[in-house]
Design a binder for these strands. Sequence first.
DNA 1: ATTATTGTGTTAGTTAGCTAATACAAGAGA
DNA 2: TCTCTTGTATTAGCTAACTAACACAATAAT
Lengths: 108, 108
Amino acid sequence: MQVVNKLKEEIISGEFTPGDKILSVRDFAYTLKVNPNTIQRALTNLEEEGFIITKRTSGKFVTEDLVFIKQKKKELASLKALEYFKNMENLGFTKEESLLNITKEGEK
Amino acid sequence: MQVVNKLKEEIISGEFTPGDKILSVRDFAYTLKVNPNTIQRALTNLEEEGFIITKRTSGKFVTEDLVFIKQKKKELASLKALEYFKNMENLGFTKEESLLNITKEGEK
DNA sequence: ATTATTGTGTTAGTTAGCTAATACAAGAGA
DNA sequence: TCTCTTGTATTAGCTAACTAACACAATAAT
């Protein structure tokens, strides 16, 4: 899951250019010091979500669908904001207090 | 960890009144359908952090130190805000964009 | 004093998710 | 054609964290 999220963020933030080939399963596993099986499972998830596509015997590539990436970026931004409000609500803050808190924190 | 965070939030948000007795280890475990050992470990952590205190053979009680609770509440609020900015940064947003995003989300 | 309730400690068993090691499939490139 | 690189699949073994089932300690309540 950590691998999935990391790579997803890298694609969304533009650290990978659409169409880029990503590391082979084996090399990726070696780099992260984890087992190839773990990487493969993670990448399968990413493929199901549409972030990458597999070209067998060539490798796996970042999607070239810029619209898709942009939409996912927007989606995740909303999600992160909602998560923040939810967290703050659990701590007993109102929405107004939460907004005030984050603008104050943002000024630092 | 989930147990710890949940209870911490309940104390901070005021769902527990300071000085309240919390469920016994056994009852707590039964309620959450987990093993008593798991609860005990979780509560030991909470005690080390100062949220609860143990009175042997009587039970465990929420701290009465209101100043402590208030401070923790503030601390966590900052942490949540920082987490949000960090998440957004990972997605490739600037701080300004992140602020804009959350105020927009907050208006809904 | 006795009993019930509480926290705490210990040992063994279980399980999910990973690692390890290997094999096979299939197209690229020489 | 042959070899290399890639994805994919399979089987077994390991480990952390949990469950299970107790036992013991201490004191409040009766």
